[in-house]
Design a protein around this nucleic acid. Structure first.
Lengths: 211, 211
DNA sequence: CTAATATTGTTCAACCATTCACATTTAGAC
DNA sequence: GTCTAAATGTGAATGGTTGAACAATATTAG
């Protein structure tokens, strides 16, 4: 089977696991591991081997019976499926402590992303240099994002400002937003949003922390 | 029905949505909204009203027919269920840019958590003051965590160090770990782990970003 | 070469989660 | 006081995801 592309009916939950497989495969590459199996991979990730085989089968046949999967080949295939076999320029909006940490993070580039512009509403921060980038004002955000062809943005502003920022990003052509503000964003159907709120994860765990 | 507590068979996916409901309810409180409905709440969150009613029904009957839910009452009930109607002392391990951002974040306290200690392996960082906390060395980590009764920790160290840190945390009595390092942790069954890796979220979105 | 072992891709059954639909209750209008 | 509209909580139906099992195939050992 060769089945790929959006709207082709591959469950979103399957797409959500591919990056996890990718991360594990990358680690295996670093360990100079040449072959793996669904069982091996599943062991590391706490996922059943059947599920891994089924997930991959949505996109093609990547393994060999008896042998398993060539790590480097499978890695490249999944990179291609997820479209991270290229580099996505990314904008970061909000340069507080978190925005700064994001801007300095070295982990994006090897995995398909690169921060190319920083924005903040605070005039006191505009002009600051972080790494080799200069913080820009909200006024130039739309034109700058358009100019650089940015389609992916990370939002690290206070909750109160997040929706307005998102609106401006969408207006400028951004199609994927990773939102760190603790609020749901309303965006057009064709714009993707993912959320990161550490407190949500913490609260999910305390439920189970009975004495 | 009065059904609460771990092992009582409430699906984990339901527990995972409660913090999201809580966040929306908190926002309604700020807006001085007195009543809400499953429909209203679902609208804001992009969740069906039926699902919200069913989720809540696992824990009791919190609404009134015809009227809906009293925001403040439902808020307190969910806070109680999740055990965030108290303050959990929290340790942060790894004081790079991210650890620093976490340590300075003002969003934990109003939602049930408080960072009470910081640790780093780098002797150059030990002794630094961040907010009103002093960075401590790994040597004193176990004793300090035990002394303060910390059960919740956030890990913001490089992937290579994360497993070792987790082992030490578990040894010290930590039962819930929020891991920012891009690697799966092996922990005993009764220890809970949640993961935050922004790149995972980004890669999940680029799949859909076909031209 | 043959037998034994390992592993894939896929089918099917079991399980889990979501949505539908409705009886029931409440508030508010007239 | 009665009627209408709004909303809950839940049982039944639907839809989706996971796991077990197996035929097919590759590798390795003898």
């Amino acid at each position: 089977m060769v089945n790929e592309g959006p709207g082709s009916g591959i469950p979103d939950i399957v797409i959500g696991r591919l990056p996890i497989y990718l991360r594990a495969l990358n680690r295996m590459l670093q360990e100079d591991k040449e072959y793996t199996s669904s069982h091996d991979l599943g062991q590391r990730l706490g996922i059943s081997s059947a599920q891994i085989r089924k997930d991959l089968s949505h996109f093609g046949e990547f393994g060999k019976q008896g042998t398993g999967y060539n790590v480097s080949y499978l890695y490249e295939q999944i990179r291609h499926i997820l479209q991270v076999d290229r580099q996505w320029p990314m904008a970061v909006v909000g340069v507080g402590d978190l925005g700064r940490a994001i801007a300095n993070y070295r982990g994006f580039v090897p995995r398909g992303f690169r921060v190319v512009s920083l924005f903040d509403a605070d005039p006191a921060k505009v002009g600051d240099r972080i790494g080799d980038l200069t913080v820009l004002s909200f006024e130039v955000m739309t034109t700058e994002i358009k100019r650089q062809g940015v389609q992916v943005a990370m939002v690290a502003v206070p909750a109160e400002a997040a929706q307005q920022v998102a609106d401006q990003l969408v207006e400028a052509g951004v199609r994927a937003i990773l939102n760190y503000a603790p609020i749901m964003l309303a965006v057009p159907e064709d714009v993707h949003v993912q959320y990161i709120d550490p407190v949500i994860h913490l609260q999910r765990m305390t439920y189970y922390l009975k004495p």
